[in-house]
Amino acid sequence: MNRTPLPALVTVLNTLGTYGTRLSPATATPEQLAIVHQAVEEARRLLAAAKGPATSGCADHPNGPVDPTDGLCLLCRGPRHRARLQAAAVDPALGDVARTLAEHGETEAVRRHGPRAVARAQAASGRSTQRKTTP
């Protein structure tokens, strides 16, 4: 079952329901009947699409699994989610991280700015990002 067309099908069926209460044999106009005919045809098309196999429309995974909540490709969900997180995350300025490193040490810099930012600041300054172990 393909859940992607279901919201549009619900909308068309609601439209048809409103005409069911407004139409009567004495007052029906050709324009109203044309609208009802078009809505019925659209409902049939959407119903046929819903009864068919689920497709995400994904170019990379055309036959991949589909997320039932939004109809998008489940295989692409992880990369999309990571991309949104990375776009939302603002890396602190390397100067601020380097200053925290110099003034308060690596532990405090990691606590304030995160390990990724500290590693980037260390790499930019030429410092090693590997911890030294004592024998």
Results as ranks from 00 to 15, higher is better:
residue 32 Q to E: 09
residue 18 T to S: 15
residue 34 A to G: 12
residue 2 N to Q: 10
residue 30 P to I: 05
residue 26 A to L: 08
residue 27 T to C: 12
residue 24 S to G: 13
residue 7 P to G: 11
residue 9 L to Q: 03
residue 15 T to Y: 01
residue 33 L to A: 08
residue 13 L to T: 00
residue 16 L to R: 00
residue 2 N to E: 10
residue 5 P to K: 07
residue 29 T to C: 14
residue 20 G to F: 09
residue 19 Y to Q: 01
residue 31 E to T: 14
residue 11 T to M: 02
residue 23 L to F: 02
residue 22 R to Q: 04
residue 10 V to C: 15
residue 5 P to V: 06
residue 12 V to R: 00
residue 28 A to P: 14
residue 16 L to K: 02
residue 25 P to A: 06
residue 26 A to R: 09
residue 29 T to E: 03
residue 1 M to A: 08
residue 26 A to G: 15
residue 23 L to K: 02
residue 28 A to S: 15
residue 33 L to Y: 07
residue 34 A to M: 12
residue 22 R to M: 12
residue 7 P to F: 12
residue 7 P to I: 10
residue 18 T to H: 05
residue 3 R to E: 13
residue 30 P to Y: 15
residue 19 Y to L: 02
residue 21 T to C: 02
residue 32 Q to S: 11
residue 9 L to V: 09
residue 20 G to L: 05
residue 8 A to W: 00
residue 5 P to N: 10
residue 2 N to F: 08
residue 16 L to W: 01
residue 16 L to N: 01
residue 28 A to W: 11
residue 34 A to D: 15
residue 5 P to L: 09
residue 19 Y to I: 01
residue 14 N to F: 09
residue 24 S to Q: 13
residue 18 T to I: 15
residue 8 A to N: 13
residue 11 T to S: 05
residue 1 M to K: 04
residue 24 S to E: 06
residue 22 R to L: 11
residue 34 A to S: 15
residue 12 V to G: 00
residue 31 E to H: 05
residue 17 G to I: 08
residue 28 A to C: 06
residue 19 Y to A: 00
residue 16 L to I: 06
residue 20 G to H: 09
residue 23 L to E: 02
residue 34 A to I: 11
residue 18 T to E: 08
residue 34 A to Y: 12
residue 8 A to T: 05
residue 1 M to P: 10
residue 16 L to V: 07
residue 4 T to P: 01
residue 33 L to S: 05
residue 6 L to S: 03
residue 25 P to C: 06
residue 25 P to G: 15
residue 24 S to Y: 06
residue 19 Y to M: 07
residue 25 P to N: 08
residue 33 L to F: 13
residue 18 T to V: 15
residue 20 G to P: 02
residue 32 Q to D: 08
residue 15 T to W: 00
residue 5 P to R: 02
residue 15 T to R: 01
residue 8 A to M: 10
residue 17 G to R: 12
residue 4 T to V: 13
residue 32 Q to C: 06
residue 30 P to K: 15
residue 12 V to Y: 00
residue 32 Q to F: 06
residue 20 G to A: 05
residue 19 Y to W: 12
residue 26 A to F: 14
residue 25 P to T: 06
residue 6 L to W: 09
residue 12 V to S: 00
residue 19 Y to H: 14
residue 3 R to H: 06
residue 23 L to C: 05
residue 16 L to Q: 01
residue 4 T to N: 11
residue 8 A to C: 06
residue 21 T to G: 13
residue 10 V to N: 03
residue 2 N to H: 07
residue 22 R to H: 13
residue 32 Q to V: 04
residue 25 P to F: 07
residue 33 L to D: 14
residue 5 P to A: 09
residue 23 L to I: 05
residue 5 P to I: 04
residue 3 R to V: 10
residue 33 L to G: 08
residue 8 A to K: 04
residue 16 L to H: 00
residue 29 T to D: 14
residue 27 T to K: 12
residue 31 E to A: 13
residue 4 T to Q: 04
residue 16 L to T: 01
residue 23 L to S: 01
residue 30 P to L: 15
residue 28 A to Q: 05
